[in-house]
Design a protein around this nucleic acid. Structure first.
Lengths: 353, 353
DNA sequence: GCCTAGGATGGGAACGTTCCCATCCAGAGC
DNA sequence: GCTCTGGATGGGAACGTTCCCATCCTAGGC
């Protein structure tokens, strides 16, 4: 019996000697309108038949699918997962379920998934997009579907944005590094492409350095295809830099940079290392890697809240809002230049491995 | 205009001067049955109206929701995410979407989510459960819903299981550690509770050690509530153990153990450390942490495949199947006792095969 | 020419809900 | 006694599809 037989509203009604309207009311949250005896009969009948309301049918009639869609650029990215966790929780609390699509940073799949999510009539969409499916998004937005862009934003789409205050984060990073005594800063990033946070972080970095005469700054991109790129870049950098520190634009870069610095035998702290995005292992790699943590949970929740606010809103559509959160600095050994202050002259040789 | 206006099949039909049946055929994959001119008219009309078929309505009539549900015990666990990635991919390839529920290891939420997923008439369920919602699951299974249990299995539920070959994994771990010269083994685990893999791993450990007279073995549990537990346990262990190695039952434990060993100032390798589950940072913490990696991607895909196989199957229900994958050993510095050989000059070479 | 086969097309009844409107009834107000 | 009010209940029309059956038409066989 493959076609899983489910009891229907009507069957429950018959079993309970009631009308389908009453049963519908019972399960639709209007229980109190029913007399106690009717309620009891329905409850019993429903239990006997193991009845569960069919959300598909509900969604069809009422137009409320109770579904929130989420598009994730890379589901294996801890940042995305952390935010997703917040989104999922917020959804559940509000009685929504989460339909996720992972796009693997592929614009084509982004489009496919978008269409798919739309076809389930999700009531709102949380988007962490890689490419720029701007046309598709705008079309959805025009149809009245609330959208929230996570982290990355697209100029051409009118939608709310929730994410990190990137300018502030970069400020915090630079201030911290300067205060610790570093003077040459390497901003290491993945190619900015369309991703607005990368651009913003880099822009702010450039801007800030222009105003800091006693700081040296440079930026280099890490192409995903070349595993050795990081090592070469860092080797170059360390060759000329004085009191050098590396600022990693995101978690992936932090990973690559850490690997590369280890391969080069550099000592963390002597070479500063500060990563944007907190990761499990950052406090594990001795002497601990300094990070700027994003409040991922809050970001996820905020996204859903934003969505539902628009959903409830009867008033004419508000202009798009940007909700930016500050990062939190986790200062660790990798930016403690002071530990190496005096013995800067001779190469210590108590190497490891 | 909050009630997002979507074009319907009927409107497209009118616009294209066709019948709804034809439009339905066009989008339902029976395009070739239509004359070229009709096809063209429908295509144009659909584009003009920006029409997208409503999956809810489809699901209602045909009974095919094209939805797969997944229950995740802890979405922040890298293992779960990795598997989920495989599941998501496989789903997409087969034209399904993924509805996820994160239960946060809470049995109550497990039940809630299960009901929720069922109410969307998912066509199959991939379950990575924390508690034992056995009754609920069996009831779903009885209704003909294909289930696949991931990793953890419940004796009382008749369902397919996909996961790691835990016995083999423990064998590999023990063999590796013995061959590297370790003699005292600490099996560090979270409390097994209902989770079958923890039980299995532990059982196999016990069983194997009974047959290895020259290996010492012990097991200790890490209660989640006590952050210092790991340090104390390891301190005790190191106090008496000779050529000690720690076998961590999962990623969480590996993290805790690594932290604790660092806090104790132990040198990895001299104290062996082998973790089940591969994590990003395992090769980063010097000198690299040896792990047994699970083929998470394959596990996820296998789960979906199993599901769909049952879905297509017209034949009478097959008995539950178990699909177990072998782990892959990533040998790294944390189990290279030889690097510290001088400390044990006289009896280090008693390696037996 | 007539009959028929079979491809293209369309009409209408589900599918399981919700929700607008009845309908029914008891008691209050006159 | 009669209307009126309002709470409890039920009937039936949607919602946007799919799918079973018609119906229409063209061309081939006789």
């Amino acid at each position: 019996m493959r076609p899983s037989r489910h009891a229907t509203l009507l069957e429950v009604a018959r079993e309970a000697n009631a009308s389908k309207t009453s049963v519908s009311r019972y399960f639709g949250g209007e229980r109190e309108r029913l007399s106690p005896s009717l309620q009891r009969r329905i409850a019993q009948a429903a239990r006997r038949l193991d009845y569960r309301p069919n959300q598909m049918a509900r969604g069809l009639k009422g137009g409320r699918s109770r579904l929130i869609g989420m598009l994730v650029a890379d589901i294996r990215n801890p940042y995305s997962v952390a935010v997703m966790h917040g989104v999922e929780q917020a959804c559940r609390e509000r009685g929504y379920s989460l339909l996720v699509g992972n796009t693997g940073n592929d614009p084509a799949q982004e489009r496919t998934h978008l269409a798919l999510l739309a076809s389930y009539r999700v009531e709102g969409l949380v988007i962490n997009a890689a490419g720029s499916p701007g046309r598709e998004l705008q079309s959805l937005a025009d149809q009245g579907l609330p959208l929230v862009l996570l982290d990355r934003w697209l100029e051409e789409v009118e939608a709310d944005v929730v994410g990190l205050d990137n300018a502030l984060a970069v400020d915090m990073a630079i201030d911290h590094l300067r205060r610790q005594g570093y003077r040459s800063l390497l901003f290491l990033s993945e190619p900015p492409g369309q991703a607005s946070p990368r651009q913003q972080r880099w822009q702010r970095f450039e801007q800030r350095l222009a105003g800091e005469p006693n700081l040296h700054g440079e930026r280099r991109d890490l192409s995903p295809g070349e595993p050795d790129a990081a090592r070469e870049i860092l080797q170059d950098f360390l060759a000329w830099a004085e009191r050098p520190a590396v600022l990693c634009a995101n978690g992936n870069v932090t990973l690559a940079a850490t690997r590369a610095l280890q391969a080069l035998g550099a000592r963390l702290g002597e070479v500063g290392l500060l990563g944007i995005d907190e990761l499990d292992w950052c406090e594990l790699v001795p002497p601990g890697i300094t990070t700027l943590a994003q409040p991922t949970e809050a970001i996820g929740r905020a996204a859903v809240q934003q969505l539902l606010a628009r959903l409830d809103d009867g008033t004419p559509p508000q202009p798009p809002r940007r909700t930016l959160y500050p990062a939190r600095l986790n200062a660790r050994g990798s930016t403690r230049l002071a530990a190496f202050a005096k013995n800067h002259d001779n190469d210590c040789d108590k190497e490891q491995r």
